[in-house]
Design a protein around this nucleic acid. Structure first.
Lengths: 144, 144
DNA sequence: GTTGTTGCAAACAGTTTGCACGAAA
DNA sequence: TTTCGTGCAAACTGTTTGCAACAAC
């Protein structure tokens, strides 16, 4: 199950290579941090945790957008406005996030094509994409 | 049409009163700034523009969340991650935003109830809400 | 060997806060 | 007259950058 969501080191390595980016232990560690659990983290979380491996905060700040460009990480918006990050498979992605523990479920089918077409017709906009997230409480947090 | 989207001073005044908040010229000016055009602005935009009326930035920073609580302002997320704000009617709100000029169209019907129910069933989450935005280019920006 | 990456610390930007004054109720 | 809001400036938080040493290729 985890193998469907996260990628083994070799695959991450290939993603770097394909993009002409160097594969360093620090970058692998940043990806590993975010992909260890199926949940979102703030950059501060990552900086704190990775300091234990002597990885500097500048490296974390530089690596997160890189992983995003490679499609390995996605930004989500907590209801509070805070930005958080989740390890994801490349491609269209939506999150259902628990606002209490940070746990995240991915889902793909969002059925927004028809709504998009209708809005485009009504407004004359050229619609390029959308951003959608659901939030609430996971089963464990709800029953607490 | 504008009267449907923005509110006359008296209505804004009432919104403050109803919430037990004082109605000051500064607060009215902040709301007026955001509601003047059907588009989104960053807080920096508001600070710059309102400095001309001798309104301090702390006041802007304090007033924006207040207007949000009153349902007069909504936060949207530019694809870049930047936060922007739009004057809106209270209630369920979605934005279709032009990423070039900042113009915003409101729409309400998002048809996500069924998807929400399906996800809740599948994941066991108690879903409290969602966040959805569309972005692209408005007609004017697309034909340029 | 060449080029890109890292860690550090300093710089920077955006946001919040303490306080004395002034305005709303 | 009391209470709350405002403006200013300082403080604070989160993020970015310059640079010398170092590691990937």
């Amino acid at each position: 199950m985890a193998s469907k969501r996260t990628r083994p080191n070799a695959a991450v390595r290939d993603a770097f290579r394909a993009a002409g980016e160097r594969c360093t232990p620090q970058r692998l560690a940043v990806y590993k941090f975010f992909s260890q659990h199926r949940r979102s983290y703030s950059i501060a979380d990552a900086v704190d945790a990775l300091a234990a491996e002597a990885i500097g905060q500048a490296t974390v700040y530089r690596t997160v957008p890189l992983l995003q460009d490679l499609g390995l990480l996605s930004r989500i918006h907590a209801p509070s406005g805070e930005h958080r990050w989740v390890a994801t498979r490349p491609g269209h992605f939506h999150a259902l996030a628990c606002r209490s523990c940070g746990r995240v479920e991915e889902f793909a089918g969002c059925d927004l094509d028809e709504l998009e077409a209708r809005l485009a017709r009504r407004t004359g906009y050229h619609i390029e994409g959308h951003h959608m997230e659901m939030y609430g409480l996971c089963r464990a947090c709800a029953s607490r």
